[in-house]
Amino acid sequence: MALARRGGIGRYYDVNGWLFVAPALGLIALFMIYPIAWSLWMSFQSGRGMMMKFAGFANIVRLWNDPVFIKALTNTMTYFVVQVPIMILLALILASLLNNPRLVGRGLFRTAIFLPCVTSLVAYSVLFKGMFAIDGIVNSTLAAVGIISSPIPWLTHPFWAKTLVIIAITWRWTGYNMIFYLAALQNIDRSIYEVARIDGVPAWARFTHITIPLLKPVILFTTVISTIGTLQLFDEVYNLTEGKGGPSNATLTLSLYIYNLTFRFMPSFGYAATVSYVIVILVALLACIQFYAARERDR
Protein backbone atom coordinates (compact mmCIF):
# COMPACT_ATOMS: atom_id res chain seq x y z
CA MET A 1 0.00 0.00 0.00
CA ALA A 2 2.67 2.43 1.06
CA LEU A 3 4.79 1.41 -1.89
CA ALA A 4 1.95 1.94 -4.34
CA ARG A 5 1.29 5.40 -2.98
CA ARG A 6 4.92 6.39 -3.27
CA GLY A 7 4.96 5.09 -6.80
CA GLY A 8 1.87 7.15 -7.53
CA ILE A 9 3.35 10.38 -6.24
CA GLY A 10 6.58 9.68 -8.09
CA ARG A 11 4.73 9.23 -11.35
CA TYR A 12 2.68 12.34 -10.77
CA TYR A 13 5.87 14.26 -10.06
CA ASP A 14 7.51 12.88 -13.14
CA VAL A 15 4.66 13.66 -15.50
CA ASN A 16 4.49 17.23 -14.24
CA GLY A 17 8.24 17.60 -14.42
CA TRP A 18 8.37 16.51 -18.02
CA LEU A 19 5.37 18.68 -18.92
CA PHE A 20 7.09 21.79 -17.61
CA VAL A 21 10.34 21.18 -19.47
CA ALA A 22 8.84 19.68 -22.64
CA PRO A 23 8.26 22.85 -24.70
CA ALA A 24 11.83 24.06 -24.16
CA LEU A 25 13.34 20.63 -24.79
CA GLY A 26 11.28 20.26 -27.97
CA LEU A 27 12.50 23.60 -29.30
CA ILE A 28 16.11 22.87 -28.35
CA ALA A 29 15.90 19.48 -30.04
CA LEU A 30 14.43 20.98 -33.20
CA PHE A 31 16.64 24.08 -33.48
CA MET A 32 19.89 22.93 -31.86
CA ILE A 33 20.28 19.15 -31.72
CA TYR A 34 18.76 18.34 -35.09
CA PRO A 35 20.73 21.06 -36.98
CA ILE A 36 24.02 20.22 -35.28
CA ALA A 37 23.58 16.55 -36.18
CA TRP A 38 22.59 17.50 -39.73
CA SER A 39 25.67 19.70 -39.96
CA LEU A 40 27.85 16.73 -39.07
CA TRP A 41 26.22 14.59 -41.74
CA MET A 42 26.51 17.45 -44.24
CA SER A 43 30.22 17.76 -43.58
CA PHE A 44 30.74 14.39 -45.25
CA GLN A 45 28.99 15.53 -48.40
CA SER A 46 30.00 17.74 -51.24
CA GLY A 47 28.32 19.47 -54.13
CA ARG A 48 26.85 22.81 -55.03
CA GLY A 49 23.65 24.13 -53.51
CA MET A 50 21.20 21.37 -52.70
CA MET A 51 22.76 18.86 -55.12
CA MET A 52 24.89 16.93 -52.65
CA LYS A 53 26.43 13.51 -52.59
CA PHE A 54 28.45 11.52 -50.11
CA ALA A 55 32.11 12.43 -50.30
CA GLY A 56 33.68 10.76 -47.31
CA PHE A 57 36.59 12.71 -45.98
CA ALA A 58 37.04 14.83 -49.09
CA ASN A 59 36.05 17.99 -47.22
CA ILE A 60 38.60 17.35 -44.50
CA VAL A 61 41.30 16.88 -47.12
CA ARG A 62 40.13 20.11 -48.72
CA LEU A 63 40.59 21.91 -45.39
CA TRP A 64 44.29 21.09 -45.33
CA ASN A 65 44.82 22.44 -48.83
CA ASP A 66 42.73 25.57 -48.41
CA PRO A 67 44.97 28.57 -47.66
CA VAL A 68 41.94 30.75 -46.90
CA PHE A 69 40.76 28.31 -44.25
CA ILE A 70 44.26 28.15 -42.72
CA LYS A 71 44.26 31.95 -42.69
CA ALA A 72 40.85 32.13 -41.03
CA LEU A 73 41.88 29.53 -38.44
CA THR A 74 45.15 31.34 -37.67
CA ASN A 75 43.35 34.67 -37.35
CA THR A 76 40.69 33.26 -35.05
CA MET A 77 43.31 31.63 -32.85
CA THR A 78 45.34 34.85 -32.82
CA TYR A 79 42.32 36.79 -31.57
CA PHE A 80 41.74 34.16 -28.94
CA VAL A 81 45.34 33.89 -27.74
CA VAL A 82 46.02 37.63 -27.69
CA GLN A 83 42.68 39.15 -26.81
CA VAL A 84 41.20 36.89 -24.13
CA PRO A 85 44.17 37.11 -21.68
CA ILE A 86 44.50 40.88 -22.14
CA MET A 87 40.82 41.41 -21.49
CA ILE A 88 40.60 39.05 -18.51
CA LEU A 89 43.65 40.61 -16.86
CA LEU A 90 42.41 44.13 -17.50
CA ALA A 91 38.98 43.24 -16.12
CA LEU A 92 40.55 41.69 -13.02
CA ILE A 93 42.70 44.75 -12.35
CA LEU A 94 39.75 47.09 -12.81
CA ALA A 95 37.55 44.97 -10.56
CA SER A 96 40.07 44.84 -7.75
CA LEU A 97 40.65 48.59 -7.95
CA LEU A 98 36.92 49.22 -7.90
CA ASN A 99 36.40 46.83 -5.01
CA ASN A 100 38.00 49.35 -2.65
CA PRO A 101 35.10 50.81 -0.61
CA ARG A 102 37.06 54.00 0.11
CA LEU A 103 37.44 54.79 -3.57
CA VAL A 104 35.83 58.11 -4.49
CA GLY A 105 33.47 57.94 -7.47
CA ARG A 106 33.31 54.17 -7.45
CA GLY A 107 29.82 53.92 -8.93
CA LEU A 108 30.66 56.42 -11.61
CA PHE A 109 33.77 54.55 -12.74
CA ARG A 110 31.90 51.27 -12.68
CA THR A 111 29.01 52.56 -14.75
CA ALA A 112 31.35 54.19 -17.27
CA ILE A 113 33.43 51.08 -17.78
CA PHE A 114 30.36 48.89 -18.03
CA LEU A 115 28.63 51.18 -20.55
CA PRO A 116 30.13 49.61 -23.73
CA CYS A 117 28.15 46.42 -22.98
CA VAL A 118 24.97 48.29 -23.81
CA THR A 119 25.87 48.84 -27.46
CA SER A 120 25.02 46.42 -30.21
CA LEU A 121 27.98 44.74 -31.85
CA VAL A 122 27.06 46.29 -35.18
CA ALA A 123 26.68 49.81 -33.79
CA TYR A 124 30.03 49.88 -32.04
CA SER A 125 31.84 48.27 -34.96
CA VAL A 126 30.50 50.99 -37.22
CA LEU A 127 31.57 53.65 -34.69
CA PHE A 128 35.05 52.19 -34.48
CA LYS A 129 35.33 52.07 -38.24
CA GLY A 130 34.73 55.80 -38.33
CA MET A 131 36.99 56.59 -35.38
CA PHE A 132 39.88 54.61 -36.85
CA ALA A 133 39.56 56.03 -40.36
CA ILE A 134 42.89 57.12 -41.84
CA ASP A 135 42.34 60.82 -40.99
CA GLY A 136 40.01 59.95 -38.14
CA ILE A 137 39.95 61.03 -34.55
CA VAL A 138 42.27 58.30 -33.27
CA ASN A 139 45.06 58.99 -35.72
CA SER A 140 44.77 62.74 -35.36
CA THR A 141 44.87 62.46 -31.55
CA LEU A 142 47.88 60.14 -31.62
CA ALA A 143 49.63 62.51 -34.01
CA ALA A 144 48.78 65.56 -31.90
CA VAL A 145 50.20 63.91 -28.79
CA GLY A 146 53.30 62.99 -30.76
CA ILE A 147 53.06 59.22 -30.51
CA ILE A 148 52.97 58.74 -34.27
CA SER A 149 54.40 60.81 -37.10
CA SER A 150 52.36 59.33 -39.94
CA PRO A 151 48.78 58.03 -39.68
CA ILE A 152 48.34 54.33 -38.91
CA PRO A 153 46.47 52.47 -41.68
CA TRP A 154 44.07 50.76 -39.24
CA LEU A 155 41.65 49.49 -41.85
CA THR A 156 43.97 48.70 -44.74
CA HIS A 157 47.11 47.14 -43.25
CA PRO A 158 46.89 43.44 -42.25
CA PHE A 159 48.62 43.86 -38.88
CA TRP A 160 46.77 47.03 -37.87
CA ALA A 161 43.42 45.68 -39.01
CA LYS A 162 43.89 42.73 -36.66
CA THR A 163 44.99 45.09 -33.88
CA LEU A 164 41.88 47.18 -34.45
CA VAL A 165 39.63 44.13 -34.12
CA ILE A 166 41.37 43.25 -30.84
CA ILE A 167 41.05 46.82 -29.52
CA ALA A 168 37.39 46.88 -30.48
CA ILE A 169 36.49 43.58 -28.79
CA THR A 170 38.43 44.55 -25.68
CA TRP A 171 36.52 47.82 -25.51
CA ARG A 172 33.18 46.07 -25.79
CA TRP A 173 33.70 43.16 -23.38
CA THR A 174 36.11 44.22 -20.59
CA GLY A 175 33.35 45.83 -18.54
CA TYR A 176 31.18 42.76 -18.94
CA ASN A 177 33.86 40.53 -17.43
CA MET A 178 34.63 43.09 -14.77
CA ILE A 179 31.05 42.93 -13.48
CA PHE A 180 31.41 39.20 -12.88
CA TYR A 181 34.61 39.73 -10.89
CA LEU A 182 33.12 42.59 -8.88
CA ALA A 183 30.16 40.44 -7.89
CA ALA A 184 32.48 37.62 -6.86
CA LEU A 185 34.79 39.96 -4.95
CA GLN A 186 31.86 41.13 -2.86
CA ASN A 187 31.56 37.60 -1.51
CA ILE A 188 35.16 37.57 -0.32
CA ASP A 189 35.66 38.49 3.30
CA ARG A 190 37.30 41.93 3.42
CA SER A 191 39.28 41.00 6.52
CA ILE A 192 41.51 38.68 4.45
CA TYR A 193 42.77 41.75 2.63
CA GLU A 194 43.09 43.76 5.83
CA VAL A 195 45.20 41.07 7.48
CA ALA A 196 47.42 40.76 4.41
CA ARG A 197 47.83 44.53 4.28
CA ILE A 198 48.78 44.77 7.93
CA ASP A 199 51.25 41.92 7.44
CA GLY A 200 52.89 44.09 4.80
CA VAL A 201 51.87 42.10 1.72
CA PRO A 202 52.20 44.54 -1.22
CA ALA A 203 49.18 45.30 -3.41
CA TRP A 204 50.44 43.31 -6.38
CA ALA A 205 51.06 40.22 -4.24
CA ARG A 206 47.60 40.59 -2.68
CA PHE A 207 46.23 40.59 -6.23
CA THR A 208 48.12 37.50 -7.40
CA HIS A 209 47.95 35.52 -4.14
CA ILE A 210 44.50 36.36 -2.82
CA THR A 211 42.27 37.79 -5.52
CA ILE A 212 43.18 35.49 -8.41
CA PRO A 213 43.04 32.19 -6.47
CA LEU A 214 39.75 33.10 -4.79
CA LEU A 215 38.19 34.18 -8.07
CA LYS A 216 39.35 31.12 -9.95
CA PRO A 217 35.88 29.63 -10.58
CA VAL A 218 34.62 32.94 -11.95
CA ILE A 219 37.75 33.43 -14.03
CA LEU A 220 37.24 29.98 -15.46
CA PHE A 221 33.61 30.73 -16.23
CA THR A 222 34.38 34.03 -17.98
CA THR A 223 37.31 32.47 -19.86
CA VAL A 224 35.09 29.74 -21.24
CA ILE A 225 32.43 32.30 -22.20
CA SER A 226 35.04 34.52 -23.87
CA THR A 227 36.55 31.55 -25.68
CA ILE A 228 33.20 30.55 -27.12
CA GLY A 229 32.54 34.18 -28.07
CA THR A 230 35.92 34.75 -29.70
CA LEU A 231 35.82 31.56 -31.72
CA GLN A 232 32.45 32.68 -33.13
CA LEU A 233 33.56 36.23 -33.91
CA PHE A 234 31.53 37.59 -36.80
CA ASP A 235 29.63 40.87 -36.36
CA GLU A 236 32.68 43.02 -35.61
CA VAL A 237 34.85 41.69 -38.41
CA TYR A 238 32.01 41.81 -40.91
CA ASN A 239 31.24 45.43 -40.10
CA LEU A 240 34.75 46.76 -39.55
CA THR A 241 36.11 45.42 -42.80
CA GLU A 242 33.17 45.54 -45.21
CA GLY A 243 32.30 41.87 -44.86
CA LYS A 244 35.25 40.69 -46.87
CA GLY A 245 37.67 39.85 -44.10
CA GLY A 246 39.95 42.84 -44.36
CA PRO A 247 43.14 43.45 -46.31
CA SER A 248 44.25 40.12 -47.83
CA ASN A 249 41.95 38.24 -45.47
CA ALA A 250 43.91 39.55 -42.47
CA THR A 251 40.84 39.74 -40.26
CA LEU A 252 38.83 36.84 -41.71
CA THR A 253 37.42 34.59 -39.00
CA LEU A 254 36.05 31.06 -39.24
CA SER A 255 32.46 32.25 -38.83
CA LEU A 256 32.89 34.85 -41.52
CA TYR A 257 34.44 32.28 -43.82
CA ILE A 258 31.48 29.95 -43.27
CA TYR A 259 29.14 32.81 -44.06
CA ASN A 260 31.07 33.61 -47.22
CA LEU A 261 31.14 29.97 -48.31
CA THR A 262 27.41 29.68 -47.83
CA PHE A 263 25.88 32.99 -48.72
CA ARG A 264 28.41 35.02 -50.66
CA PHE A 265 30.11 32.58 -53.02
CA MET A 266 28.53 29.67 -54.86
CA PRO A 267 26.91 27.86 -51.92
CA SER A 268 29.02 24.95 -50.80
CA PHE A 269 27.06 23.66 -47.82
CA GLY A 270 29.09 20.51 -47.21
CA TYR A 271 32.42 22.25 -47.02
CA ALA A 272 31.01 25.11 -44.94
CA ALA A 273 29.60 22.54 -42.50
CA THR A 274 33.05 20.98 -42.23
CA VAL A 275 34.56 24.35 -41.38
CA SER A 276 31.81 24.90 -38.79
CA TYR A 277 32.74 21.60 -37.15
CA VAL A 278 36.27 22.89 -36.75
CA ILE A 279 34.75 25.55 -34.46
CA VAL A 280 32.68 22.95 -32.62
CA ILE A 281 35.78 20.85 -31.98
CA LEU A 282 37.89 23.87 -30.99
CA VAL A 283 35.29 25.09 -28.50
CA ALA A 284 34.98 21.65 -26.92
CA LEU A 285 38.73 21.14 -26.85
CA LEU A 286 39.56 24.54 -25.37
CA ALA A 287 36.80 24.30 -22.77
CA CYS A 288 38.15 20.92 -21.67
CA ILE A 289 41.71 22.26 -21.48
CA GLN A 290 40.54 25.23 -19.42
CA PHE A 291 38.57 23.07 -17.00
CA TYR A 292 41.53 20.70 -16.73
CA ALA A 293 44.02 23.51 -16.13
CA ALA A 294 41.80 24.96 -13.41
CA ARG A 295 41.50 21.60 -11.70
CA GLU A 296 45.24 20.89 -11.77
CA ARG A 297 46.04 24.02 -9.81
CA ASP A 298 43.64 23.00 -7.06
CA ARG A 299 46.10 20.55 -5.59
Binding site: G17, W18, V21, L25, I28, F31, M32, I33, Y34, P35, I36, W38, S39, M42, I228, L231, Q232, F234, L254, S255, I258, Y259, T262, F269, A272, A273, S276, Y277, I279, V280, V283, A284, A287
Partner: peptide, 24 residues
Protein backbone atom coordinates in the same frame (compact mmCIF):
# COMPACT_ATOMS: atom_id res chain seq x y z
CA UNK B 1 15.75 14.78 -15.93
CA UNK B 2 19.02 15.67 -14.24
CA UNK B 3 20.85 13.89 -17.05
CA UNK B 4 18.77 15.65 -19.68
CA UNK B 5 19.52 18.95 -17.94
CA UNK B 6 23.25 18.37 -18.09
CA UNK B 7 23.08 17.37 -21.74
CA UNK B 8 21.05 20.50 -22.41
CA UNK B 9 23.72 22.69 -20.81
CA UNK B 10 26.21 21.28 -23.30
CA UNK B 11 24.24 22.99 -26.08
CA UNK B 12 25.60 26.27 -24.68
CA UNK B 13 28.87 25.35 -26.35
CA UNK B 14 27.37 24.88 -29.81
CA UNK B 15 28.57 27.73 -32.00
CA UNK B 16 25.88 29.37 -34.07
CA UNK B 17 28.02 29.05 -37.19
CA UNK B 18 27.50 25.29 -37.04
CA UNK B 19 23.72 25.72 -36.94
CA UNK B 20 23.13 28.39 -39.51
CA UNK B 21 23.27 26.31 -42.67
CA UNK B 22 20.82 23.61 -41.52
CA UNK B 23 18.59 26.27 -39.96
CA UNK B 24 18.62 28.24 -43.20
Amino acid sequence: RERVYRAMLLTLMIPFAALMIPLF
